[in-house]
Simulated scan of single mutants.
Amino acid sequence: MIKLIIADDEHITRLGLQSMDWENEGFRLEGAASTGPEALAMVRSLAPDLLVTDIRMPGMDGLTLMQTLKQEYPKIKVVFITAYHQLDYALSAIELGAVGFVLKPTDPDEILEVCRKAKDQIEAEREQAAAETHLRQQLKEYTLTLQGKVLPEADSGNAIVATMTDFLEHHYMEDVTIGKISEELHFHPDYLSRLFKKETGENFSDTLTRIRMQKAVEHLADPEIRVYEIAAKVGIKDARYFGQMFKKRFGLTPNEFRQQQLALIDEDNSGRAEP
Rank of each mutant, 00 (worst) to 15 (best):
V52D: 04
G36A: 08
L17Q: 09
I122W: 04
E274H: 04
A232Q: 12
N24Y: 00
E184I: 15
Y142I: 15
L151T: 02
C115H: 03
A162G: 02
D266F: 06
M1N: 08
L252G: 01
G243S: 13
L185R: 02
K140N: 12
A232H: 09
N203Q: 11
Q138A: 11
R28G: 11
R212G: 11
T143A: 12
I230C: 07
T64R: 08
L65P: 02
A221L: 14
I230R: 02
K117V: 09
F27P: 05
L17P: 11
I81E: 02
L208W: 05
H188M: 08
K70N: 09
I2W: 06
K198E: 14
S45V: 04
G148H: 06
H170R: 13
F196W: 05
Q138C: 05
I211V: 14
I55P: 03
D107F: 00
E125Q: 12
T163E: 13
V161A: 08
V43N: 01
L29A: 11
I178M: 15
Q86D: 15
M20W: 06
G26N: 09
A47F: 03
H186Y: 04
T163G: 07
K180I: 15
A90G: 01
E274C: 09
P105T: 04
M42G: 02
Q244G: 07
G97L: 00
K75H: 05
D61G: 03
I111E: 04
E184T: 15
I81H: 00
Q71Y: 00
